[in-house]
Computed example of a mutant assay.
Amino acid sequence: MQPTMQQLDIFADSRDVMLRNDVLEQLQQRNATAARTALERLAAEYPGDGALSAMTALVRDLGSGSTAPFADHAALASARRHLEDEVVPAARRVLPAQTVHAWLAPCWRALAARAATLAFRGTDAVNHAAPLWLLAGDWAAAREAVEGIESWWRIPAPLAWMTEARYRAAGLDAAWPLLAELAWLAPARFAALLSALGDASLDTLRRRFDAAFPGTGEVDDYAWFPAWLLVGKPALAGRLGEARVQRNRAASRATALLGEILRREHEGDQHELVNLRQEFSRLHAGLFDTYMATRKVQHR
């Protein structure tokens, strides 16, 4: 029996789908040669196909595969912009959503490896291997890259990278000391990292902080997040006590002081508590009132 005209139309409509799927299959296998062949077949039969430009960008990226170290930061910046502006949108355009991150990971890994010899520059922090290793999902390599930066814990960008690497590799409990240090040093970066981590418990704490902390409502309030957290969750005193105290920052001193207050409370040293509480109240009166409300005692 001869196929009807309607059946022929269905076959014609499904032909482009089949050819697109052929390209996608080879892309997901990262087979550059086979992907290029499949792409050429699709382009020959359907030159106006809407997925052609995105697929072409991905096939070209698969075939580029340079492993040569970047000569300078400008070369890395150019390669990174290409990946961010062309390859990433193309991957999101044509690949299944659940596979995009895994497909892009080798791309970021290749850039990170090529950037390994480039020194950290504070004025151009994004062009360094560490954030690329994070995008590649290699937490150990990210940590190693950050450790190569002198005094990284005193610089917002590498401290944020190390904090994320610690969280991704070992979880929230292990990351608390670095999260505290980041909040004190760079509140805006701390807030941005909380959003990026997507941790349900952190998101809940952040909402509570935003609603209850007696601050100005500005992003700098997040410097006080560790101290505020300690008021409500004294069990974290040990973890937060591992953070490097930044004596030139009131919020850091307040967190350390509150840890000492909690210890004195446990020991029942009422005389010393009076002095410590007075010192705490001078650092942040509103947070001190919050703390005292949880103790149901009168400040003397």
Rank of each mutant, 00 (worst) to 15 (best):
81 R>T: 11
214 P>Y: 04
224 W>R: 02
39 L>K: 00
79 A>I: 06
226 P>K: 06
277 R>E: 14
253 R>H: 08
270 Q>E: 14
215 G>D: 06
281 S>R: 09
124 D>T: 10
218 E>I: 09
109 R>I: 03
256 A>G: 15
277 R>M: 15
67 T>D: 14
70 F>H: 06
239 R>Y: 08
267 E>V: 14
265 E>L: 14
61 D>L: 09
286 G>Y: 05
15 R>Q: 14
130 A>C: 11
71 A>F: 06
33 T>K: 08
167 Y>H: 10
30 R>M: 13
128 H>I: 05
122 G>D: 06
115 A>V: 08
143 R>M: 13
236 L>E: 07
27 L>Q: 00
147 E>T: 15
102 A>F: 05
189 R>E: 06
211 A>Q: 07
284 H>T: 10
11 F>P: 00
41 R>N: 10
258 L>C: 07
120 F>A: 03
66 S>W: 00
44 A>G: 10
12 A>D: 13
100 V>P: 02
168 R>M: 07
230 L>C: 12
118 L>S: 03
111 L>E: 04
68 A>M: 11
234 P>Q: 04
206 R>A: 11
129 A>E: 03
19 L>W: 03
18 M>R: 11
30 R>L: 13
109 R>D: 12
119 A>S: 14
95 L>V: 08
187 P>I: 07
150 E>F: 12
108 W>Y: 13
145 A>L: 03
99 T>I: 04
205 L>I: 02
26 Q>I: 12
2 Q>R: 12
76 L>Q: 08
14 S>I: 11
35 A>E: 02
260 E>K: 14
43 A>C: 01
190 F>Y: 05
193 L>E: 04
274 V>K: 02
128 H>N: 14
134 L>D: 01
177 P>V: 07
215 G>I: 13
